[in-house]
């Protein structure tokens, strides 16, 4: 972008992909500076006095969710690869995932609640898989 004679401007098509990102980056930088200038006290305060993350959160449930989700995402295409274009990867991976997440979130694991969680874990993915993959013929992993 050539802005030598503002407000006239000429944009070279070959480099036009950089015009807007550059503008937005500069704006973002200015805003960041403005925030630092007006709020440095608050920000500094947050840095110097604890408690630091991840203190004060439920470690087991938070990191459990993330770990299970990552495993779920990794497993889906792998399993699906054995049955190309059937959507079984989604179905087979979702059932244990749903069950484990439910168990993770339960506070009192009574037999009744575990049974409900298990039924839900089997039923919900099956219904979704059947409706989307078969009835609407959407591609699932």
């Amino acid at each position: 972008m050539n802005m030598a004679s503002f407000p006239k401007v000429s944009i070279d098509f070959a480099s036009s992909h950089l015009v807007f990102p550059m503008l937005v980056s500069v704006l973002l930088g200015l805003l960041l500076v403005a925030i630092l200038v007006t709020r440095w006290r608050t920000i500094w305060g947050a840095f110097t006095t604890g408690p630091y993350w991840p203190a004060g959160i439920d470690h087991r449930r938070f990191f459990g969710t993330i770990v299970l989700t990552v495993l779920y995402f990794l497993a889906m295409p792998q399993i699906g690869d054995f049955f190309p274009n059937e959507g079984y990867g989604f179905l087979i991976a979702s059932i244990p995932f749903l069950f484990l997440i439910s168990l993770l979130y339960l506070h009192q694991r009574t037999r009744r609640q575990i049974v409900i969680a298990a039924i839900n874990a089997v039923l919900a993915p099956t219904v979704v898989w059947y409706l989307l993959s078969t009835a609407f013929s959407l591609t699932l992993p």
């Binding site: 979130y105 839900n120 959407l138 591609t139």
Partner: peptide
């Protein structure tokens, strides 16, 4: 109950994102 609702929402988000 959230132990049912949240996993199902999570699964639906995955389906939505994939499709």
């Amino acid at each position: 109950p959230k132990y049912i609702l949240l996993p199902v929402i999570l699964m639906m988000c995955v389906v939505g994102a994939y499709t």
